[in-house]
C-alpha cells in the first residue's frame, strides 16, 4: 500500500526516531529497518531519508559519527539523543491520540476501549 506523501512526511521523523531509539544505525541499515519493521508498508523513499536525517541532526534530536564497521569500512552511524527521546515520546503520544480519535470517527472503537 502506498501512502500519501504528505501523510508520510509527518510520520517519517517519528518512525526514524523510534527505530534509532532501539539502537544506533547507519543510513542504509535504517532504511532497511523501516521497511522490514513496517512489513514493507512504510517506504520513506530512499532519497528523502538523508535530508530527513540531516534535519533531525540539525535539531539535535540525533547525532552522527563516523566509525569503522566490522567489515573495516567507515560508516556514519546515527543515534538518538536525550532531546530526541523526549521528542519521540511527545510525538508518539500525539500519534496514539490521533489514532484513537480516527478510530472513534470511523466507528472502530478507540480511547474508550483502550
Amino acid at each position: 500500500m502506498k501512502y500519501e506523501r504528505e501523510l508520510l512526511k509527518g510520520v517519517a521523523p517519528v518512525v526514524v526516531l523510534e527505530i534509532l531509539s532501539r539502537g544506533r544505525m547507519y543510513g542504509y541499515e535504517l532504511s532497511e529497518a523501516v521497511e522490514s519493521r513496517s512489513k514493507g508498508l512504510l517506504n520513506l523513499g530512499r532519497g528523502t531519508l538523508y535530508p530527513l536525517l540531516y534535519n533531525l541532526e540539525a535539531k539535535r534530536l540525533i547525532v552522527a559519527e563516523w566509525e569503522e564497521a566490522e567489515n573495516g569500512r567507515k560508516r556514519r552511524y546515527y543515534s538518538i539523543t536525550s532531546d530526541g527521546k523526549g521528542e519521540l515520546a511527545r510525538q508518539k503520544e500525539q500519534l496514539m491520540s490521533l489514532r484513537d480519535a480516527i478510530g472513534l470517527v470511523f466507528g472502530l472503537g478507540g480511547l474508550a476501549t483502550a
Binding site: 528523502t48 538523508y50 540531516y54 540539525a58
Partner: peptide, 13 residues
C-alpha cells in the same frame, strides 16, 4: 531536488 534538500539539512547542522 535531493541536492537542494541535503544542502538545506546540512546548512541547518
Amino acid at each position: 531536488l535531493l541536492a537542494v534538500l541535503i544542502r538545506r539539512g546540512k546548512k541547518r547542522c
